[in-house]
Simulated scan of single mutants.
Amino acid sequence: MSYNFKILSIIFLCLTILSCKESEIKPLTEHYQKEGVEFNYNSDWVLEESGSNNISFLLFKKVNDDDFRANINLLVVQKEPSIDFEKHISSNKNYLLLEKTKNLEEKIVSINGNKAYRIVTEKNFEGNDYTLLQYSLLIRNKAYTITFTSKSKYYKQNIKEVDEIINTFKFES
């Protein structure tokens, strides 16, 4: 009996160590800098610079989550002079919280000293649940929107790494 207990304890310890190693975040060794925006990311992500529809880039997770790859993108638009931070937040929130969208979290945060609105929502689309994390910032004459989209079942698995990437964002001021 004690022999079986020892074997089970060793197996449990090995599994615990292996699961911890899998959840470690790789160092942020890759660097992006263009048009007043810079950030770091790691080699588990692939950068695609699109430039279309005001999207500066798409950063895709290399591992394919079923048929959808988790991604981070940055939207940059010229800010209307009459739009202040509160109006910008209200506009983004109204857009995000469309029909059948759950608001999971919202708060004001700072990204490298810049005031940002953070909102996390969840929505079912074509039978799949997706979680969307969005940061909205106004800096000088530009509105920046950083969005992370993931299948909901993979959100918790990715969020620590995504937060680490987003916290490296710097904007030309």
Rank of each mutant, 00 (worst) to 15 (best):
S23Q: 14
K79Y: 04
K153E: 15
S152T: 09
L138Y: 14
F125N: 06
S110G: 01
I139M: 10
T168Q: 08
F171E: 05
K142G: 01
E106V: 01
T149L: 09
S91E: 13
E172C: 02
K142H: 14
E86F: 07
A116S: 10
N158A: 11
I83N: 07
S91Q: 13
L96P: 01
K6L: 09
D163T: 07
V76D: 03
Y117E: 00
T29I: 05
S50L: 06
L137V: 09
E105P: 00
S173D: 10
K100F: 06
L138N: 15
L137F: 09
G127Y: 12
E38H: 06
V77D: 06
E164C: 03
T16W: 11
R140Q: 15
V46C: 01
E122N: 11
F85T: 13
D163Q: 09
T131N: 00
N4K: 08
Y95K: 09
V76S: 04
S50N: 12
E49G: 01
Y144S: 09
K170F: 09
T131K: 02
L8K: 10
N103V: 04
H88E: 03
K6W: 05
P81V: 15
G127A: 07
E106T: 01
K107D: 04
F169D: 00
Y3R: 04
K160E: 15
I166Q: 04
D163M: 04
F68Y: 12
L58C: 03
L96K: 03
K21V: 10
F60L: 11
L96A: 11
F57H: 11
G36I: 05
G51F: 02
E105D: 08
N71H: 11
N54M: 05
A143P: 00
H88K: 02
N54K: 07
K170I: 12
K61H: 15
S50V: 08
I119M: 05
N112R: 02
R118D: 08
I159Q: 14
A70F: 00
I10N: 13
C14P: 06
E24C: 15
Y154R: 11
E164T: 11
L137W: 00
S19D: 09
Y155P: 00
Y41E: 08
N94T: 12
T101P: 00
G36C: 05
D129Q: 12
N42I: 13
E48H: 12
S90I: 10
F171S: 06
N40L: 03
L97I: 10
E38G: 05
E164I: 05
K107E: 05
V63P: 00
N167C: 15
W45I: 03
N112C: 01
L132H: 07
S56M: 07
L15N: 14
G113Q: 06
F125R: 07
Y117R: 01
I159W: 13
L18Y: 14
A143F: 04
K100L: 06
S52T: 06
F85N: 11
K102Y: 11
K79T: 06
I10A: 14
E38M: 04
Y155I: 08
A70L: 01
I111E: 05
K100Q: 12
N53G: 05
L132F: 14
Y41L: 14
D84V: 02
T168M: 05
V37F: 08
S9D: 15
K170H: 12
